[in-house]
Amino acid sequence: MSTLDLAAPRSPQRRSARRSNFELYSWLFMRLSGLLLVVLVLGHLFIMNILDGGVHKINFAFVAGRWSSPFWQFWDLSMLWLAQLHGGNGLRTVINDYARKDATRFWLKILLYVSMVLIVSLGTFVIFTFNPNISG
């Protein structure tokens, strides 16, 4: 008797749920980080571009002065991390929604994660190791 290539009726075609809350937390993170970023980014833009002569005041000394304070270090650090994770997670959902092939999806995500890690580590490194006493 030849075997049929048909799936048995009502056989589950869908992977069973993984019981993971990852999507829930990433959804929640987008809302919360978005709220924080509104304050952080608008505050940053206001200080940099509007207060005290705006963008013309920004030079090496201005940045050195700001980063000598732990408050601004923390401000810039949280802005960097939140913006990277928020934007990266947003791009992850865009890739998930729009990539048509599994291979495309995989490689786009690898590219995304690598760039995220690079930018976050480079930025963090600069904020913590910034040396205002640069010579020559």
């Binding site: 749920a17 993984r18 019981r19 993971s20 809350n21 999507e23 998930n96 929604d97």
Partner: peptide, 14 residues
């Protein structure tokens, strides 16, 4: 709810 908590569940709604 477990089924809809997955990657293809409600969190995909935009």
């Amino acid at each position: 709810l477990d089924i809809l908590n997955d990657v293809d569940g409600v969190w995909r709604c935009r």
